[in-house]
């Protein structure tokens, strides 16, 4: 039963994306695409995941998107200021940090967020250990780097993905 709800929801999302992309009004067109979306959803039925939604999680997710956008803008100003100087001021290195997140989706979002924020780039992930290239190393030790890079995002992602 749960699986059927997921398949129907996935079909609706795929059809909605097609509708937004083409803005078609022909009913036949939408029916064909809904059939194709159902076919794709049935193929991927074992990989569909739905998080348990609650108002607190949705509020945290919206706040997280705004926080991430501000961080991305800060990162770009940082890069721009570094690039236009005659001698590029860098102090790079790869540091090791630990994450508390368990779910794969949460880890994916964490690594993507780290890549997009000022001066950090995820190089490798091994279990709960992340290796991060840092353009301006302030702390070589694991605990200090964890606090400076990861903990800001973990506060929100822990609530969203549990």
């Amino acid at each position: 039963m749960n699986k059927i709800v997921k398949i129907v929801f996935s079909t609706i999302v795929l059809t909605l994306f097609y509708f937004i992309w083409t803005r078609t009004t022909s009913v036949n067109n939408i029916l064909v695409i809904a059939g194709l979306g159902l076919f794709v959803s049935i193929i991927y039925r074992n990989y569909l995941r739905s998080p348990i939604l609650s108002p607190k999680k949705i509020a945290y997710a919206i706040f997280y998107v705004f926080y991430l956008f501000i961080e991305i803008i800060k990162a770009n100003i940082d890069v721009a200021l570094r690039v236009i100087k005659p001698v590029i001021p860098i102090n790079p290195g790869i540091v090791k940090v630990k994450t508390k997140l368990k779910s794969p989706m949460g880890r994916l979002l964490l690594t993507s967020s780290i890549t997009l924020t000022p001066g950090t780039l995820t190089v490798d992930i091994d279990g709960d250990t992340l290796y991060i290239h840092w353009i301006d190393v302030k702390d070589k030790e694991e605990s200090g780097a964890t606090e400076k890079i990861v903990s800001n995002f973990e506060k929100y992602l822990e609530v969203i993905f549990g």
């Binding site: 860098i90 997009l116 950090t120 190089v123 353009i135």
Partner: peptide, 19 residues
């Protein structure tokens, strides 16, 4: 301009995403 691959990737990824 950046001196090695990882620094180049930092500049490339962040700026192209927001840009």
């Amino acid at each position: 301009r950046m001196p090695d691959l990882y620094n180049r990737m930092q500049a490339g990824t962040k700026s192209t995403t927001l840009g």
